[in-house]
Design a binder for these strands. Structure first.
Length: 844
RNA sequence: GCCCGGAUGGCGGAAUUGGUUUACGCAGAGGACUUAAAAUCCUCGGCCCGAAAGGGCUUGUGGGUUCGAGCCCCACUCCGGGCACCA
């Protein structure tokens, strides 16, 4: 078969007939089958992308043949640092490069044989698209969910822009792997923390890959604890150093998840940028030393802090805190092991119950007071091994730091209380507050780059001076009026970032000069652009109505098609895209823009394809280019081979030789068409009929569960079977092609149309809109089975027997078998285990 | 350090969730066709003993539960991924 010609022909015919375009208004069973859209670069589609797309498409085709009106859109996530960096690398302007990449990507995406609804394609850099990205920003601002704030943020020195916490992976920039540093900058944030609880709880109600849910749960990082105030006293204010004196009502509030250990708090630690340091400066006797430490800490990057590992710190001499549980006067330290952005930026240190505090206390020779003892060991000791484990635990306790729960000691009236219970009793006793704390931080949305949607905000100095503004908390700031959207990204020659902390757009007065929407004085436009992840956080909404210029999408269509029924993509987006998209869906729902608050009912993460056991990378030169394989073997063969390598959700190892098996398989599928019986009445033998139905069942179930590798294996087994028949009924062959259709769409259609006498090809004629084969449960069960006969659990024989035989019948059969008799005698028979239609085991 | 996965022939991987380990495919060996090669077709392939029938061993290691364990439990080793001073 000439693959290239067939593929070309069907791409044309399918598109002309609109085989993969659902009827948006009239669809009876809408099924939104979505695949994460790619970031394009002219290097083109990677075999890993194709792997993901194919897996998604097989599911879509399967659902379509099961009678659903499947919508499988495609587009490009072409705005953002990724595309811009690539453009810079090849010395091209991002806007021009986008056009080149677009062409290349769409060419490849058409080649891989997916049933895309091309009419609804979109690109995030298209002004008709980003108009609505900006509109969303405006809504966020108006609802108090977008705000500006100066704080220490992540800065990538290579990309020359700030990054969100989610885009810093292990201290490195997610895009270019450069070490990220801290910078104090005023930036735009989205208040995702407001949705922390909802984002966490609603994980329960969605059907998503488990590992993604776990990653999100960890990222949100909920912990229950207490806020406790430690009053400060100052020795300089009084001659009586031991007693100290209080200055006004200064206190440090700390957050802890272990208020039960309060009596063991022997010092407190503030993060170096804690605001109270400034307030009590005058009372610090070793101010110079403290200031030096603060400076040093600021200079350190996250990496250096990690590498150093050893704890550092400085005592605020002259200042003490009062432990509210026992009124003890304890020292106050600062250290960079306490994070400014979490809790209150201050902790109580309980070295006996926290490994980090213990390490710190050891280094600076601070007191350790044990307050929790593990529950008596004997209660968990059941056998010798437990005893050994118990011994280990004792050792850990002897190591003076025990982080578990247990029974309190040295804790005043709370001594001997269960530590879990004591948590809230002690909190109450010292007048603390229960507090739920999240690890999640707000989403930093501004980027100091060119290739993105300009943030649609205007700053008016005059209004700011007068204390006016669209929102009270941000004087001077106004959203661009809806009628003025989109704020078009101008074509500028000098688009490269310079690392000055502002976007290249800030060099173009033509762009940033604006009129205040309120007072009409000369004002300044925001020159930063928004994060690419905002573009992709809502694209699934736009697909259903991409040409709508009046509203972001039609509510009527949204109600029909949303939320997305099946979403497939990479697990690397667990706490990036997949978190942002859920956040915005919840916001939209609260704004009454949509009727749902989870965007994707079902999400499955595909696995990773490696090459000859190693990760593919350009530097290793082992990147598989799908174009070559498609040219040589055809798209069908590559699709099927990719799916055959291993379980879709786990990925697999690509070996060049492996595709030959699939090529042979497809050639044989064509070859057996010569054996199709001339007579339409011809049927299958009973055993073949059973086998066919078993195969339909397995392939249906495996495809539904994304176990494509075993579905293909069953197709092969079925083909092997059909090859042995002298002739094949036409209906059986058609059934086979239908089962094959999602996997090898071109060849199956070509062979299917051999029977067609029509001159023209219409939508309804396509194999891909035919009805998926059904299996008859009665026909799945065979009459006979192989009875496994065991003696003492060892297989001694297998005997063909009739299904449904009784234990007595089975015993009688087994006892006739010579080999079985060799190993057993009836006298010492202790027990007989019988598993109907499976096995009989004689225990001696 | 913590949290998830995983370890099965020469290789990619199957195994009805406790019931014949190694399906399907790749690679390999032997044969048929051919002047020859490729392609195709047929046969054989876990390891050890055996001519065969058959037997013994075998799912990273060690133990346990069970009539029976790749699958369940305990301890450990190695590999991959995520988080990482989050109090």
């Amino acid at each position: 078969m000439k693959y290239a010609a067939i593929e070309k022909k069907w791409n044309k015919l399918w598109r002309k007939a609109g085989v993969f375009e659902p009827d948006f208004k009239r669809a009876k069973k809408p099924f939104y089958n979505l695949m994460m859209f790619p970031y394009p670069s002219a290097e083109g589609l990677h075999v890993g992308n194709m792997y993901a797309f194919t897996g998604s498409d097989i599911y879509g085709r399967f659902k379509r043949m099961q009678g659903n009106d499947v919508f499988e859109p495609i587009g490009l996530d072409g705005f953002g640092i990724h595309s811009e960096n690539y453009a810079m690398k090849v010395g091209q302007h991002p806007a021009r490069q986008a056009k080149i990449s677009e062409k290349n990507f769409y060419r490849q995406l058409e080649m891989i044989g997916n049933g895309f609804s091309w009419n609804e394609k979109l690109e995030t850099y298209d002004p008709t698209y980003y108009k609505w990205t900006q509109w969303i920003f405006v809504q966020m601002f108006k609802h108090g969910l977008a705000y500006r704030k100066k704080k220490a943020v992540n800065w990538c020195p290579s990309c020359m822009t700030v990054l969100a916490d989610e885009q810093v992976i292990g201290g490195e920039c997610e895009r270019c792997l450069t070490k990220v540093i801290n910078k104090d900058l005023e930036q735009w944030f989205f208040r995702i923390t407001k949705y922390a609880e909802k984002l966490l709880n609603d994980l329960e109600k969605i059907d998503w890959s488990g590992k993604v849910k776990i990653a999100q749960r960890n990222w949100i990082g909920k912990s229950e604890g207490a806020l406790i105030r430690f009053p400060l006293v100052f020795s300089l204010l009084t001659s009586d150093v031991n007693k100290g004196a209080r200055m006004g009502n200064v206190a440090v509030e700390i957050f802890t998840t272990r208020p039960d250990t309060l009596f063991g708090a022997t010092y407190i630690v503030l993060s170096p940028d804690h605001e109270i340091i400034e307030k009590v400066k005058a009372q610090i006797s070793n101010l110079k030393e403290v200031e030096n430490y603060i400076l040093d800490a600021k200079k350190k990057t996250a990496e250096e802090r990690e590498e150093a590992m050893e704890k550092t710190g400085a005592e605020l001499k002259g200042i003490y805190a009062i432990n509210p549980a026992n009124q003890e006067k304890i020292p106050v330290w600062i250290s960079d092991y306490v994070l400014a952005g979490y809790g209150t930026g201050a902790i109580m240190a309980v070295p006996a119950s926290d490994a980090r505090d213990f390490e710190f206390a050891k280094k600076f020779n601070l007191p350790v007071r044990k307050v929790v003892l593990p529950k008596p060991l004997f209660s968990i000791v059941r056998n010798a091994e437990d005893l050994a484990a118990g011994a280990k635990q004792t050792l850990r306790v002897a190591g003076e730091c025990y982080e578990g729960s247990g029974e309190l000691i040295n804790s005043g009236e709370f001594s001997s209380m269960d530590s879990e219970k004591a948590k809230w009793e002690i909190t109450k006793f010292v007048g603390g507050k229960r507090k739920t704390q999240y690890r999640l931080r707000d989403w930093l949305i501004s980027r100091q780059r060119y290739w993105g949607p300009p943030i649609p905000m205007i700053y008016c100095e005059k209004c700011a001076d007068a204390g006016k503004g669209e929102r009270k908390e941000m004087p001077g700031w106004y959203a661009v009026l809806a009628k003025d959207l989109p704020v078009k990204l101008p074509y500028i020659k000098d688009f490269r970032p310079r690392g000055s902390g502002v976007s290249p757009l800030a060099r173009y007065p033509k762009f940033f000069k604006a009129k205040c929407p309120k007072c009409s004085s000369i004002a300044r436009r925001e020159t930063d652009v928004s994060d690419t992840f905002l573009d992709s956080a809502w694209y699934y909404l736009r697909y259903i109505d991409p040409k709508n210029n009046k509203e972001i999408f039609s509510d009527k269509l949204a109600r029909k098609w949303l939320p997305v029924d099946m979403y497939i993509g990479g697990a690397e987006h667990s706490v990036l895209h997949l978190l942002y998209v859920r956040f915005l869906a919840k916001v939209f729902n609260d704004m009454k823009l949509t009727h749902f608050d989870e965007p994707f009912l079902k999400f499955r993460a595909h696995g990773l394809i490696v090459k000859d056991g190693a990760k593919m990378s350009k530097s290793k030169g082992n990147v598989v280019n799908p174009d070559q394989f498609i040219k040589k073997f055809g798209a069908d063969a590559l699709r099927m081979y990719l799916m055959f390598i291993g379980p879709f959700e786990e990925g697999g190892d690509f070996r060049d030789q492996g595709i030959l098996g699939i090529t042979r398989f497809l050639a044989r599928v064509e070859k057996i068409s010569l054996k199709i019986s001339k007579s339409l009445k011809a049927g299958l033998s009973e055993s073949s009929e059973i086998f066919l139905h078993q195969s339909i069942k397995k392939i249906t179930e495996d495809t539904e569960n994304l176990r494509y590798n075993t579905a293909i294996s069953q197709l092969m087994i079925l083909l092997n079977h059909l090859e042995e028949l002298p002739e094949i009924p036409r209906k059986t062959y058609e059934t086979f092609l239908k089962l094959l259709a999602p996997y090898a769409p071109y060849i199956s259609e070509e062979l299917y149309q051999m029977f067609s006498r029509k001159k023209t090809f219409g939508k309804k004629d396509s194999l891909h809109l035919s009805v998926w084969p059904k299996y008859n449960l009665k026909k799945v069960i065979e009459e006979s089975f192989y009875l496994v006969v065991q003696v003492n659990g060892r297989v001694r024989s297998t005997i063909k027997a009739k299904r449904g035989i009784s234990q007595l019948e089975a015993e009688a059969l087994a006892k006739k078998d010579n080999n079985v008799l060799k190993y057993m005698s009836t006298e010492n028979l202790k027990k007989v285990i019988f598993v109907p239609d499976k096995l009989i085991n004689f225990v001696l």
